[in-house]
Design a protein around this nucleic acid. Structure first.
Length: 479
RNA sequence: GGCGCGGUCGCCAAGUGGUAAGGCCGAGGACUGCAAAUCCCCUAUCGUCGGUUCGAUUCCGACCCGCGCCUCCA
């Protein structure tokens, strides 16, 4: 099976080809670790995770590299404020990031390089660029990339050099003017930033003096190092990175190494919150913790963030989260019914049917799988799954057919990274006091004291929880 | 101004040159001590105006409206 994906560079959907004799090289720009990642960051990382899973199921051997940006303005500034060594400061946020990733059921990348560990590679890269006159040391001791020396500059974003210059007269370019005198041209960008007092001890020696590498450079160096200098097959990131970050990466890498950086560009659209752009000043920047504190499971968040087209901005709402949680439950119930039919309980599902093995056919869910392979159409995939659920096939199928169907569903859920019958699927558990009330109500109900049972239910609802009775027990859900 | 994305049922959201998947919510029914859950069932002609076509939501053009990037924000 081949996977097709939209490529930002060619502005078209292209097949991702399987390389001969080596894995599929896949690089993603990872988080800057100076605080908790927000749900917008996770939208991007999650869709990258889904792609990685789809590729795996489609028979690609993937080498997925996602970097950690631990050397930059913000990480340095925050660590200085907290009087911490940079590596100690960032380590805390790296661990937090990893724990969020785990809660969201993201597979760890094959390799996760930190910029801090690649300083010398970055210096080497700058030296190569200076040698080829693609870079120069500015008056302030920083090193800048000479955009004019790179004819191809702007090819990813389809902008030409004359347009770059006219930006100086636009409002968007005003911010650039401030330190223009350090550079030959307004569009030149920093490869190396000269040491400043506020950087504290965060500086390194280089042939052109003390300082630290620039952000764009880090990715170029880590890609070169992680993939043995070969052209990579896919490069991903948020759409905001398309310019200037990825444009600059291309310029640096291709000017220094004279080989194409990457053959396919994968950008995901942003997340809006309740119709507005997400930003700290609007107070609508949510983290996984914020979501969990509202009683929503990480799985519902994952479902929300991956269930629509990655190329379209997604408007995040709490209404949508609740919808996702309900939809997940629906999938769970369906699987439960299938399992019951062949005398298995839900504990067997993850063990027996969630398998990352390549499946050759998806039977009744062939279209759902095709959708994933066709530019990661997660919405159509889920639509097909629910279409099948709606056709209520359980009673019509033989045991063997049910077993096949469970395998197909298991593989699709694996591709989407959606876990069922797992604690992550459940919302927060009720406090002990509420559970006590619920037990009393259950007893009253068994004694047919319905007045008392109803009164207790009202009490429980006042605490923010609702009850669902089954023939044998009760369950509590947040209202 | 440049580059790019989009306007499909109350909300979210697929899709195709031949008369619109799915999810949530909501209505009705079955079930239930009552609820909930579950099951059944109901709800759109696709921003506007032209054009191409036997036929367009889907192709082309114009217009209107939203949004992103062009400032080291995924």
């Amino acid at each position: 099976m081949s996977v097709k994906l939209y490529d930002t560079f060619s502005r078209s959907i292209k097949e991702l080809s399987k390389p001969n004799g080596r894995p599929f090289y896949y690089y993603c720009c990872g988080p800057t670790v100076y605080g908790p990642a927000h749900i917008g960051n996770f939208r991007t990382f999650l869709i990258q995770d889904v792609l990685s899973r789809v590729l795996e199921l489609a028979g690609y051997e993937v080498k997925h590299v996602r970097n950690i940006t631990d050397v930059d303005d913000k990480t340095i500034a925050r660590s200085q404020e907290k009087n911490q060594a940079l590596a100690d400061f960032t380590q805390e946020w790296i661990e937090k990031f990893h724990s969020d990733c785990h809660a969201l059921n993201m597979k760890p990348p094959s390799h996760e390089p930190k910029a801090l560990d690649y300083i010398s590679e970055q210096i080497d890269l700058i030296e190569a660029l200076i040698k080829k006159e693609h870079a120069y040391v500015g008056k302030d001791g920083s090193v800048y990339f000479r955009v004019q020396s790179c004819n191809a500059y702007g090819k990813l974003n389809r902008i030409n050099q004359s347009e770059l210059k006219t930006q100086a007269s636009n409002s968007a370019g005003q911010a650039n003017l401030a330190d223009e005198y350090d550079r030959e041209s307004i569009s030149d960008f920093a490869l190396w930033k000269a040491r400043k007092p506020e950087d504290g001890s965060n500086y390194w020696n280089s042939p052109w003096g003390e300082g630290r590498p620039g952000w764009h450079l880090e990715c170029s160096a880590m890609i070169h190092s992680s993939f043995h200098g070969e052209t990579i097959d896919l490069h991903g990131g948020g759409i905001d990175l398309c310019f200037p970050h990825h444009e600059n990466e291309i310029a640096q890498s291709e000017c220094a190494y004279s080989t194409p950086l990457c053959t396919h560009w994968f950008h995901s659209a942003h997340l809006k919150v309740e119709g507005e752009k997400m930003s700290k000043s609007l107070g609508n920047l949510f983290t996984l913790k914020d979501i969990q504190e509202k009683g929503i499971s990480p799985m519902a968040l994952r479902y929300t963030l991956i269930s629509s087209s990655y190329r379209q901005p997604l408007n995040f709402t709490f209404e949508g989260l609740v919808a996702s949680q309900t939809a997940l439950t629906k999938i769970e119930r369906f699987i439960e019914a299938l399992l019951q039919k062949i005398n298995l309980d839900s504990g067997n599902f993850n063990k027996r049917f969630i398998k990352p093995n390549t499946l050759n056919h998806f039977g009744l869910l062939e279209k759902a799988w095709d959708a994933l392979c066709n530019n990661l159409n997660t919405a159509a995939c889920l639509g097909n799954i629910f279409g099948l659920i709606g056709s209520n096939p359980t009673s019509k199928l033989s045991d063997a057919e049910i077993e096949d169907l469970l395998k197909s569903i298991g593989s699709l859920l694996y591709a989407l990274g959606i876990q069922v019958f797992n604690d992550q699927t459940k919302a927060l558990s009720a406090p002990q006091s509420v559970i006590e009330l619920a037990k009393q109500r259950w007893d009253a109900k068994q004694n047919k004291d319905y007045a008392k049972a109803d009164a207790l239910r009202v009490e429980i609802q006042a605490e923010g929880w609702d009850i669902k009775d089954t023939p044998t027990h009760f369950e509590l859900f947040p209202l």
